[in-house]
Every structure is written in structure tokens, then in C-alpha cells.
């Protein structure tokens, strides 16, 4: 059995659960990200779920499936959903499906963040 790397980290502050998705998000890696985020979402039941995509180095339409799937899951649970800090390449894919008309896409000022 092939293993997937742990490609999601979480922070939970003031009712906002942020899932920091890292690395390449394709069909192979989306599966583990999906189950990790859903598990955390159901455990914490936050007021808001934010997917932070600033550390995504590659994303194709499987990543779009991951985002839309989490949006639907959040909607089902009555949780507000936002996407944060997509790279230009990631934003190109989101825009193809009109994602920014479905959910909020927020870009923080992270230019000075060297972490």
C-alpha cells in the first residue's frame, strides 16, 4: 500500500479552524487531505473553516474537487467557509470553475512572512 504524506496542518483560534494545505495537491494527495480536514472539522465544529493554500506548490482539478467538497461539507454543518492565500497558479484553477463566486477568497498580506 502506498502511503500519503501528512500534507495538512491545523490551527484553531477564535472559532476559526484553519487547515494549512501543503505541497502538491493532486488526485493522489487529495485523498489524505480530505480525510484529515473532515475529521478535524467534525471534531471541532468551528464557526468557520478556512483553507490556507499559501504553501500549495501544485494543484490540479483534484484540488478543486477537494475545495468544493470541503465547501459542501461546511455548508452541510452550517460552518462558514473561506479560501485563503491561493498562489496565482492555484487561483487560475479556482477561477476556471468560478470558485470565487461560490465562496470567499481572501488574500492576507504575507510578504514579510519568511517562515
Amino acid at each position: 500500500m502506498l502511503h500519503s504524506v501528512k500534507n495538512v496542518e491545523f490551527s484553531n483560534e477564535s472559532g476559526v479552524l484553519t487547515a494549512f494545505v501543503k505541497g502538491e495537491v493532486d488526485h493522489h494527495n487529495a485523498k489524505s487531505a480530505r480525510s484529515m480536514i473532515d475529521r478535524e472539522l467534525e471534531k471541532i465544529r468551528p464557526a468557520q473553516l478556512a483553507l490556507d493554500l499559501s504553501a500549495v506548490s501544485f494543484m490540479d482539478s483534484s484540488g478543486l474537487g477537494l475545495i468544493l467538497g470541503r465547501y459542501n461539507k461546511a455548508l452541510e454543518l452550517g460552518v462558514k467557509f473561506t479560501v485563503r492565500n491561493p498562489t496565482p497558479a492555484t487561483m487560475k484553477i479556482i477561477s476556471l470553475a468560478g470558485g470565487e463566486r461560490i465562496f470567499d477568497v481572501i488574500t492576507d498580506n504575507i510578504e514579510n512572512d519568511n517562515t
Binding site: 487529495a30 490540479d60 482539478s61 478543486l64 474537487g65 477537494l66 468544493l68 467538497g69 476556471l96 470553475a97
Partner: peptide, 10 residues
């Protein structure tokens, strides 16, 4: 399987 159906469109 949460396929977005956007593969060929991409």
C-alpha cells in the same frame, strides 16, 4: 470520489 469534472476543461 469528489471529482470536479474539470479535467478536460483544464
Amino acid at each position: 470520489g469528489e471529482r470536479s469534472g474539470m479535467g478536460f476543461t483544464v
